[in-house]
Amino acid sequence: MQIGTSLFFDRTSSQMTNLSAQTSTLNTQIATGKKLSAPSQDVVAYNRLASIKQATADQAAYAGNTSLAKSLLQQSDSTLTQVSTQLQRASELTLRANTGTLNDGDRKTIAVELKSILDDLVNLANTSDARGQPLFGAATGTKAVVQGADGRVTLGGTGELPAIPVGDGTTVAATDSAERVFGNIPTKAGGKTDVFAILSDYITALDAGGDISDASATAIDGLNASQSQVSNVQGSVGARAARLDIVSSQATDAAAARESDRTELEDTDLSAAITELQKQMTILSATQASFSKLSSLSLFTYLR
């Protein structure tokens, strides 16, 4: 079989060009640590990498939200513990005030402490969170509760704040409104009241003096219901915090899986790349040597 001189040169030149390109690519992969530098190298892998990077960016945002939600729930739990302590003390004072051995002066002294507890509860209700916003804020209103000049307290708004997104299709309510914590206490008449009204009414009765048995019974029932409600909210806070721990754990596992996929698609296997580079350079060197030797033969010189 005869091989034309030009065909020999073309084939050999093409082979050396391809080998040079391969060694250049391998050198780049080794130097950068990345297998892919352009979409044209592997369109499917590049698209997959883009999806992984987008998911990683999304998860970074969700992680920030999760951290915020955890912080808010921890602050809520701590604040609700203080609220529960104040309500317990108010209940103790109410039972004491209902003792028949006390006179009006004694009860007015108790009323003074109950006023202090009421003020403390207002301050706790208006606690600011890490963002400077009301911890027990509502969908409407800028303050959790508002205390008027007459000492009467009203809820600053109604409705719950939107839940915080912590994952694809996953949200967590990181806060509870003052209405949920302090309001909607059922009364014997079938209506609703709040812990501030319960205390304010009882303080008024104590200051007025006389028979307080009915007022004491109403206050005791209301404070017991308030304590139960706060306990329920605090239990819900704990459950949501536990859920966030699960969300965080799942996010960590997903991030590890994405990183494994990214590494396989994008990162250079240095050991394999170096071995392949040495192989390609050996072939290139041999090809160049063969080409140089063959091209110098007199037959090729003659054929040209």
Results as ranks from 00 to 15, higher is better:
Met1Ile: 08
Ile3Met: 13
Phe8Asp: 06
Asp10Ser: 12
Met16Gly: 08
Met16Arg: 09
Leu19Trp: 06
Ala21Lys: 07
Ala21Glu: 04
Ser24Gly: 14
Thr25Cys: 00
Gln29Gly: 00
Thr32Gly: 07
Lys34Gln: 07
Lys35Thr: 02
Ser37Met: 11
Ala38Arg: 02
Ala38Ser: 10
Ser40Trp: 03
Gln41Ile: 03
Asp42Cys: 05
Ala45His: 03
Tyr46Pro: 01
Ser51Pro: 02
Thr56Met: 03
Thr56Pro: 02
Ala57Asp: 04
Ala60Gly: 01
Tyr62Cys: 02
Tyr62Gly: 05
Ala69Leu: 09
Lys70Ala: 07
Gln74Ile: 04
Thr79Ala: 04
Thr81Ser: 14
Thr81Met: 14
Val83Ser: 06
Ala90Val: 00
Ser91Tyr: 09
Leu93Met: 04
Thr94Glu: 12
Thr94Asp: 15
Asn98Trp: 08
Gly100Val: 00
Gly100Phe: 05
Asp106Val: 04
Val112Pro: 10
Glu113Trp: 01
Lys115Phe: 03
Asp119Cys: 11
Asp120Tyr: 12
Leu124Asp: 07
Ala125Pro: 11
Ser128Val: 01
Arg131Asp: 08
Phe136Gln: 07
Ala138Tyr: 01
Ala139Val: 11
Gln147Gly: 04
Gly148Tyr: 02
Asp150Pro: 07
Asp150Tyr: 03
Gly151Ala: 01
Gly151Arg: 01
Gly151Ser: 02
Val153Arg: 07
Glu160Ile: 07
Ile164Phe: 02
Gly167Gln: 10
Asp168Phe: 02
Asp168Tyr: 01
Gly169Phe: 14
Thr175Met: 09
Val181Met: 12
Phe182Asn: 05
Ile185Gly: 01
Lys188Phe: 00
Ala189Asp: 15
Gly191Ile: 02
Lys192Pro: 08
Val195Ile: 14
Val195Ser: 06
Phe196Cys: 07
Ile198Val: 13
Thr204Trp: 10
Thr204Tyr: 15
Ala205Trp: 03
Asp211Trp: 13
Asp211Ser: 10
Ile212Tyr: 08
Leu223Lys: 13
Ser226Arg: 14
Ser226Pro: 12
Ser228Leu: 15
Asn232Tyr: 03
Val233Pro: 04
Gln234Lys: 15
Ala241Asn: 15
Ala242Gln: 09
Asp245Thr: 09
Val247Glu: 02
Glu259His: 13
Glu259Gly: 11
Asp261Trp: 01
Arg262Gln: 11
Glu266Gln: 02
Thr268Ile: 05
Thr268Asn: 06
Leu270Tyr: 09
Leu270Val: 06
Ser271Glu: 13
Ala272Val: 03
Ile274His: 10
Glu276Met: 13
Glu276Arg: 14
Leu277Met: 08
Gln278Phe: 00
Ser285Ile: 09
Ala289Ser: 14
Phe291Met: 09
Lys293Met: 00
Lys293Asn: 07
Ser298Met: 08
Thr301Pro: 12
Arg304Trp: 13
